[in-house]
Amino acid sequence: MQLNSLKIKDLEVKVPIIQGGMGVGISLSGLASAVANEGGIGVISAAQVGFKEHDFLENTKEANIRALKKEIARAKELAPKGVIGVNIMVAMNDYDDFVKIAAEAGADVIISGAGLPTDLPKLVEGSNTKIAPIVSSGKAAKIMCKLWHERFSRLPDFVVVEGPEAGGHLGFKLNELEVRTDDTLEHIVQDVLNVVKEFEHKFDVKIPVIAAGGIYTGADIARFLKLGASGVQMGTRFICTEECDADVEYKNAFINCNKEDIQLVKSPVGMPGRAIRNKFIEQASEGNIKVTKCFRCIRKCNPATTVYCISRALINAAEGDVDNALLFTGSNGYRNDKIVTVKELMNELVSEVEQA
Rank of each mutant, 00 (worst) to 15 (best):
L6C: 00
L11N: 02
E12K: 14
K14S: 12
I26Y: 01
L28H: 05
G30Y: 00
A36F: 10
E38P: 00
G40K: 08
S45V: 01
A47D: 05
Q48T: 12
T60V: 05
K61Q: 09
N64R: 11
I65F: 13
I72K: 05
I72L: 01
A73I: 03
R74M: 14
G82W: 04
G82L: 08
G85Y: 06
G85M: 02
V86E: 04
N87R: 02
N87D: 13
I88M: 07
M89T: 02
Y95A: 11
F98N: 07
I101L: 14
A102N: 07
A103D: 12
A103W: 09
A105W: 01
D108Q: 02
D108S: 08
S112K: 08
G115M: 10
D119T: 15
V124Y: 01
I134Q: 09
S137Y: 11
G138Y: 04
K139W: 12
W148I: 04
S153W: 01
D157P: 07
E162A: 01
E162V: 10
E162P: 03
G163E: 05
H169R: 03
V179P: 10
R180E: 11
T184V: 14
I188N: 08
Q190S: 13
V196W: 00
I210P: 05
T217R: 11
A219R: 13
A219E: 13
A219C: 03
A222D: 12
A222I: 06
R223W: 02
G228C: 10
A229V: 08
S230I: 00
Q233M: 15
R237W: 12
C240E: 01
E242I: 07
E243R: 05
V248W: 05
E249P: 01
C257Y: 03
N258F: 10
K259C: 06
E260T: 15
V265I: 15
G270Y: 04
M271V: 04
K279W: 03
I281W: 14
A284Y: 09
G287Q: 11
K293L: 11
R299V: 13
R299S: 13
S311K: 01
N316H: 11
E319K: 15
D323F: 07
A325F: 09
N332F: 08
Y334D: 09
R335L: 11
R335F: 02
T341Y: 02
L345A: 07
M346Y: 09
E348T: 15
E348N: 07
E352H: 11
E354A: 12
A356I: 06
A356V: 02
